[in-house]
Amino acid sequence: MKTRGSLTEVSSDQEKVTTAAPEVPPSEVSLAPLTQDATEPPARSQWQLFFRRFRRHRLAIASLVLLVVLYLVVSFSHLTAPYPLNPKTLSPPRGPNLTHLLGTDDLGRDQTTRMIYAAHLSMTIGLLVAIFSTLIGTFVGAVAGYFGGWIDQVLMRVTDLFLVVPALVVIAVAQQGLDQKKLPIFGKLSSSTLIIGILSILFWMYIARVVRGLFLSLKEKEFIEAARASGASSWRIMFRHILPNTIGPIVVNTTLVVAQAILLESTLSFLGLGIKPPAVSLGSMMSDAEQWVGTHNAYLIYFPGLLLLLIVLAVNFLGDGLRDAFDPQSKH
């Protein structure tokens, strides 16, 4: 359950739709970002419509602004971080004070500084995982949905496999196995590279299933028939005619992948299976600070957690706004 948010729920319902009960209309799940009624080819007016609707979603706009500003702040950590990440001398933790606004951790390291570096890593991981999994997932999903055949079969069977085993378990096994191991081509991966790779491998399948479903229904539509009749090649139809119609659900799902990836990464790091020192993520910060729960130093748990909550919440609001903007019907 902990690895499941709205994204995986979508996927599991998609699973039901495609394998078990084809009669169930997907609109049963109103939370689903996935919509299948985008039947018209895109027109400029549609994008204008989208932007107009999105602008109305004030929470989403605010979230977008917050995320951009926050990411800029944490990206230029050499300018924004008040202290070096690893000071030369260690000291016991001290609560929030004027020199260290959010206090220092159990090695005397400035908590604000660590949170800036950690948030940068966490957000970057979320972003990269979303980009990689969207690129791979869209391509594979498009091919599988359009051509069907063995690619489709392989995709469905492999994703079935991952529906059976909890995601956290898959990732934990993979992380434990590959950590500190010299791989044939990549060499020894840093813990962050490794986690990005593993999460991308997990999430592209979800995107692929979403895209596959969209392609499956869109390829039967009349305007595609028309394009086919006019002699367009399969690839051209896929990427010039169908793909633009799937942008909405894909973007929404990409946003959700960002949120899920950040949450999963923090959970893994908390369990000691994710980011390892010297790298620092919000999850590993909380893992380090776990011993202070119940003491007056519990702020070491509260602050990174609140920042993480803020980031993921903003991403989810953004996703919600995007969904509404792409598909006004889904809003009740």
């Binding site: 260690l90 016991p92 933790p93 090695l107 776990e290 011993q291 202070w292 729960v293 130093n297």
Partner: peptide, 28 residues
């Protein structure tokens, strides 16, 4: 088995003694 959990359990009075390994830095 989780040292941090053991410390929490001690602090809240659920166990009356514990004997963990020291980690660098402060000791809660």
């Amino acid at each position: 088995t989780d040292t941090a959990a053991e410390q929490q359990d001690y602090k809240s009075g659920q166990i009356l003694a514990s004997y963990p390994q020291a980690q660098p830095g402060g000791e809660a």
